[in-house]
């Protein structure tokens, strides 16, 4: 009896140890990879300002990150605006405060949902493509070829991608804001029958340009975060097709986790900033 109990206890202890080990390894890997990505970013970012300037590359990547993400951003923005408005309407209906649906939705969208969802969508779409592209270039010796040709690969491949993401993300976030609010307007006015004048008047009353700017600043930071992480993972990929797959997977997952974690800290930092300046 005692022996059985001891065995079970040992098994539980072993399982607990394994669980802690797995979680610990994941955390260590995550922190190491993120640290590498930031070191990589600080090596690559100054290269944006070194000659030869690569405007063509920046425009090409802006087109890829921005233009080709617009449709999916519009789609996500519209349905986020619709769903959020409906939930907030239902909640506020309980306390007879439906005239505050507009500003509440606007606050949620501009400060939080637009930058975070834009960051997550673009990290998955463009960030994944960046990691896969650079990873493939690494394992097929194309990056080595650039180096032996006397071209700095980080300046040619990484810096334009980071700059393009940094410039494009606030624009995409602005598009998300606009489309989500259009969705909210459509639902609240055309479906739920709220008054359009009150809806927009309350938004004007409660929303500052600072709220919109907060979202745009967050989106810019998220652009830097996902492009730095994904290019770093791709650039340092090893081991053929498997390595490229792993680099892409880790790049996207790390970017998404970092965007969500950083969003919380940026929100606190911005609030603190307003508190101090006001």
């Amino acid at each position: 009896m005692i022996n059985t109990w001891m065995q079970k206890r040992q098994q539980v202890n072993q399982a607990l140890d394994d669980f802690i080990l797995v979680v610990g390894l994941y955390v260590v890997n995550f922190v190491t990879n993120t640290g590498r990505a930031f070191t990589f970013f600080f090596q690559s970012a100054p290269l944006i300002f070194t000659k030869p300037f690569r405007f063509d590359e920046v425009i090409k990547h802006m087109e890829f990150v921005g233009n080709k993400s617009v449709l999916i951003i519009c789609l996500t923005g519209a349905f986020t605006g619709l769903a959020l408005s409906y939930q907030i309407y239902l909640g506020f209906l309980l306390v007879n405060a439906t005239n505050l649906v507009g500003p509440t939705v606007a606050l949620g969208i501009t400060r939080e949902l637009a930058p975070v969802l834009t960051g997550l969508i673009v990290a998955a779409r463009a960030g994944g493509a960046m990691a896969a592209r650079l990873g493939t270039m690494r394992v097929t010796e194309q990056i080595d070829a650039l180096e032996v040709m006397g071209v700095n690969p980080q300046q040619y491949l990484v810096a334009p991608r980071i700059l393009a993401s940094l410039l494009t993300m606030p624009l995409l976030c602005g598009v998300f804001d606009f489309i989500a609010m259009m969705g909210s307007h459509f639902l609240c006015i055309n479906v739920l029958g709220l008054d359009a004048a009150i809806f927009w008047d309350r938004i004007e009353q409660w929303i500052d340009p600072g709220d919109i700017n907060e979202g745009l600043i967050k989106a810019t930071i998220f652009g830097v975060v996902f492009s730095a992480i994904c290019t770093s993972r791709g650039y340092n990929a090893k081991g053929g097709a498997k390595g490229v797959g792993e680099a892409t997977n880790q790049g996207v997952v790390n970017s998404m986790v970092m965007i969500i974690v950083m969003n919380y800290f940026i929100t606190n930092f911005v609030r603190l900033f307003y508190l101090v300046t006001e």
Binding site: T136, T140, E141, Q142, D144, A145, E147, V148, M149, G150, V151, N152
Partner: peptide, 30 residues
């Protein structure tokens, strides 16, 4: 070192051509 490497030309094992560029664009690149 980057500047110095223009004195060297390398043919890689699998050629390592830039796969988004045509043959002539690959040669024009350097």
């Amino acid at each position: 070192l980057i500047r110095f490497r223009t004195n060297l030309g390398v043919l890689f094992q699998y050629a390592a051509l830039f796969d988004d560029m045509s043959a002539i664009e690959n040669v024009c690149f350097p």
